[in-house]
Structures are given as structure tokens and as C-alpha cells.
Nucleic acid binder design. Structure first.
Lengths: 316, 316
DNA sequence: CTGTTAGCGCCTTCAT
DNA sequence: ATGAAGGCGCTAACAG
């Protein structure tokens, strides 16, 4: 039960100085093939495991990745997307000896960001919900990444696009959309994609507005059936909406997907276990979070836009 | 843009030694009122912020809380409860300058735990999914906590109990239960609670088995209506099951909650936005995770069992 | 109660 | 390419 070995022991065993051992083990700095070999062997022999805390202290680097989520409500930290992202980052940084800290930032809190930047224990910061990156302190330069508009983001248009095309290729020709509240920026992209696609395909545009809840989805679907009884597909911009629509269709005796196909958006956990299984689009939140974590920590990240993929189950 | 002040500066400004300054600022060790005062003032003046990394290195303590989840599948790290817990811990340790790392542990991986215990960057460990704590290394003594059976856990019986009592006090007398697979340990507690309560109240016991999915819930609800047409309430052990049951009831023209009340279990996000809103029981995952984090990090934790609370929406 | 003195384990100039 | 030496910022004996 002896103390785990430290660099000094490895160096002594390898017959080199700690400096050389450090250079070899960290990879930064020159080293002859001979000493590299000796050090590596010695390290393996004694089962050397570097001490990230000491290393980072010496380098003046922090030991945690701060995930700062800007939102009106502090409850945002329980949001499924936030928790998924936070967990993914916590798993991603684990091998590096780092950890993730989660924090809520009120809408107007530029000062908070300053204080965060001054916290020497913070290795890097991942920002979410910051639609403007103007107030990011200069001290954070090179050690932060943003998730969302302007940063690493999900290409949601690819998701609804694929879903819509799927409906079209499976023969649907009268496709209605239950959109989001028109004043919401996030709701406009899907709407744009829908109208563009319908126009290109020479199909009628049938839009009613929803609000991301099942209750509204239910009412909206009823409205669709009333105004356009020949509708053969209903696309939505949220799984809850779609699930609500399914309920309305069931109540009206409309068979899904036989008479009307339905698609959701987001792939919430319940979408898979729902009955019938909801066809929807899934967002690679884990990939995005991991990419953001890596980017913030300084790795070069090639993809900044991650496609949302359709996942076809029973309703379309 | 000068470097943030360090302890030495505070000490010099306060006219004391760094040791005294340290003692005052950390609270451990004696200090005269005079020097305490001087140090505090100096610290405030220069805007001193302690450097957790240096502090922990000097103390030989790690800088991250490791959340190790034992399960057959690595995908468990995306499980909603795991992500919620991880995020809650990440928020809980944030003020202490720590971070959370997340890691999956295969079923038989005692060696992994050993390696974790040897990782000097790990301040403490929170274990989940470990039904036996026998193979927890001695080196982890005093710096780990377990979530789940035997550790900090949710008192789920209180949740179904409260739900069942609610059904009873609102006049339901023929209450059926859609349970879980009988061979699952987790499914037995709710079943026990149900049968005990029914017996005590002199009500009939009506149990069919489900499997936590909506599809099964749907079929099970149909079975209930067939076998016991006068049933006036259906309790379940998962929201998905309840949601499936709702669908079956809707298809059969049964009004909810007028004719039959329905309760779920878990309070998944969709339960709130479902239509009608699902009455269910919510588990204080965030509280549990926070308590586990604190316990692992050495704080005395008074509660080890957290009650699951009923949340009444439209279906009961 | 307080200051002095060693570290914690590693990295990084600076000479050589 | 390599070694010696001096930190990184703080804590913990140990004397006083």
C-alpha cells in the first residue's frame, strides 16, 4: 500500500533528471531516443500515473471545465438538454483528470463572466445561451467555446428537412406543419425550411401555430383536420406537440400512420417508448457537448454544425 | 490586467505571515481577533480569491468528484436519471472549486475502483448501481458515498403510497396496478406497498404486469378493463406505462379522470406537458445527488432516504 | 497565538 | 539534448 510513484522515482529509475522525465512524459520538449526509452520503461515498471493537479498548478492551468448556462431562470440547470450536455462533458473530460462544474448565469451578468475568468481553478469555459459573445472577457480568449447560435450547434434544419423529405418520398402530398410561436427565433428556422421545401415540391403550405406542449399540439391537430380534412401528414417542431397531435388523431378515429403520418422533433426519451413509437429527429447533444468541451480546452475542432438525424419509428 | 493577488500579498498587506493569513482564510487553526481582522480586510481590499488547485495540492486532496455508475451497458451514462444527478453534482460542487467527472463501470470491475482510488486527482467518489459495497477499496474510506440501495436513496414506497392514498381519499375503490416485471427487484417494493395498502383498506387486489413501456401499458390497461370492467383507477410504476394506459382508455372511450383515474411514477419531463397532464410521483434526484456529493466530500449528511412526492395534475 | 521552514508533484527557463 | 534550480500558490508541522 505504498504511495503511488512520482516523477522523481521514475527519473531516478531511468537514470535521468526529472526535467528529462517530464519532457518525455508530457511530450513537450526534446529528448533523445535513448532517454525517452528509459523513461517510458521506468514509468511502466513502477506504474507511474501523472498527477494532473500538480501538473496543472505548475502550468498555471485550472482543473475544471465550467459549463455556464445563461438563462432567465436558474431552473435551466435541470433542463434535459443541459443535463445531457453537462453529463457528456463530465464523461469527456474524465480521462484528462479534469472535472466539470455547472453554473447558471442570469441574462445580464457580464461581471460574472469576469469573475469566472479570474478563477484560476477554471481551465476553460463552455458557454450556452449566450446569443452575443461580445461580453466574453479577453482573459478567456483561447479557452472558451460556445454552444448554440454562433458556436457549436445542431443543424436543426437538416433534421426537419430529412423528416419532410421522408414524408414526401413515402407518398405524402398534403403535409401540415404545427410550428412554434412565431415570435420565437428558434421557431423560425423550421418554418423556413418547411415552406421552402413545400414550395419546391409544389405542395400546399398548411401551417398552424403550436407552443411546444402536447395540449396545444392536440388542439392544433384538430384544427388541421378541420381546415384541411385531406391532410395526410402532420410535421411538428417538438415531440410533445406531436404526441398531443397523436392523441387528437386517435380521438378522431384517424389511423396513424395509415391515414396520417406524424413526426416530432427532439427525440425525448419518451418518444421511443411511446405507443406508437414516435418518428422524430434526434439531436447529437452528446457529440456537441463533447466537441465544445474539447474546443474550449484547446483542441482543434473540425465540425461546428452537427446534423440532426431523423429516427423513424412507427408514426411516419 | 495584473495577476490576481495571492496569499503572500494579502499577508504582507495585513502585516502578518502567510501562515497566519492562511489560517484565517481557511478557518483552520487559531488566530487572534486582531490579525483575523487585518487579514480579512486586506483580502477584501485586494480582492483576494483563493486558488483551490494549489490548496488541494498542498493538502494532498483531489480536485474532482468522480461519479462512477456501474451498469451492464455504457449507455447508462445517457440515462436521464444519471444525467440529472451528474448535472446536479456539477452545480453543487461548483462553489468549492471542484468539478465532476463521470465514468461508467462494467458490472465486474473491482480493479477499476482500485485504480480510481489511486488517482490522486480524485477528491471523492459517488457510486451508483453498486448493490454491494464490499469491493470498495479501503483507500476510499471516508471519501465516497453510494446512491441507491444501501446508500442515499429515494423512498419510492412513500411515493406510490401517497398516490394510492390520494386515489382512495378521492373516492376510488377499485384500484388496479400495472406493475413491473416480477423478477425485477425494483418492481417488488411498489407491489408490496400496493397489496399492503389494498388489504388494509379492504379493497380488491388487481394486478397485471407491465414492463415500463407505453406499449405494454396500453395492452395492460386493456386487460384491466376486460377483466375488471368496474375498475375506477389504474396505478402504474412508470410514467411511460401510465401514458400507454391513457391511450388505451381514450381508445375505449373511457373518460379520465371522470371514469378512471390514472397515476404514473417518476415524473418524466413529458408528464407535465402531456395532455392531459399526468399525475405521478416525482423523485428528488437533484437533492439526492447533492446529498451524495456532500457526503462523499466529507460533510455530515443527515438524510439518507428522500421521499418521493406525489404531483397531482389532471389524471388523478 | 504566530512566524519559519519544508514540502505537495510537476513544469520550465537557463545554462551547459 | 540534458541537468540544476526556481517556482506554481498554498498548507502543515514545528518551534517560539
Amino acid at each position: 500500500m505504498s504511495r503511488s510513484p512520482v516523477l522523481t522515482e521514475v527519473a531516478r529509475l531511468a537514470g535521468v533528471s526529472v526535467a528529462t522525465a517530464s519532457r518525455v512524459l508530457t511530450g513537450r520538449g526534446p529528448a533523445s531516443a535513448a532517454s525517452r526509452d528509459a523513461v517510458l520503461r521506468a514509468a511502466a515498471d513502477v506504474g507511474y500515473v501523472p498527477h494532473p493537479v500538480a501538473s496543472r498548478l505548475a502550468r498555471g492551468a485550472g482543473t475544471r471545465l465550467l459549463f455556464a448556462v445563461r438563462d432567465r431562470r436558474a431552473g435551466i440547470l435541470s433542463d434535459p438538454f443541459v443535463t445531457r450536455a453537462a453529463a457528456a462533458m463530465a464523461a469527456a473530460v474524465e480521462p484528462d483528470g479534469l472535472g466539470v462544474a455547472l453554473r447558471h448565469l442570469p441574462l445580464a451578468a457580464a461581471a460574472e463572466l469576469d469573475r469566472i475568468a479570474a478563477d484560476r481553478s477554471v481551465a476553460a469555459v463552455v458557454l450556452a445561451g449566450h446569443d452575443s459573445l461580445d461580453d466574453v472577457p479577453a482573459r478567456l480568449r483561447g479557452r472558451f467555446a460556445a454552444i448554440g447560435a454562433g458556436g457549436i450547434d445542431v443543424d436543426s434544419e437538416s433534421g426537419i428537412g430529412a423528416l419532410l423529405r421522408h414524408l414526401h418520398t413515402t407518398g405524402r402530398r398534403r403535409i401540415a406543419l404545427i410550428g412554434g410561436p412565431p415570435w420565437l427565433a428558434a421557431a423560425r428556422a423550421p418554418l423556413r425550411a418547411y415552406t421552402a421545401l413545400m414550395r419546391d415540391a409544389g405542395l400546399p403550405v398548411r401551417v398552424v401555430t403550436g407552443d411546444f406542449t402536447a395540449v396545444r399540439g392536440c388542439a392544433a391537430a384538430r384544427a388541421v383536420l378541420r381546415r384541411w380534412p385531406d391532410t395526410d401528414a402532420i410535421a411538428t417542431v417538438s415531440d410533445a406537440t406531436a404526441l398531443g397531435a397523436l392523441r387528437a388523431l386517435a380521438e378522431s378515429g384517424v389511423r396513424v400512420p395509415h391515414d396520417v403520418a406524424v413526426t416530432g422533433f427532439d427525440d425525448i426519451p419518451f418518444a421511443a417508448s411511446a405507443s406508437p413509437g414516435l418518428s422524430t429527429a434526434t439531436h447529437p447533444v452528446e457529440l456537441i457537448a463533447t466537441a465544445a468541451a474539447r474546443a474550449a480546452l484547446g483542441s482543434a475542432v473540425r465540425d461546428r454544425l452537427f446534423p440532426s438525424r431523423p429516427v423513424l419509428r412507427a408514426t411516419a
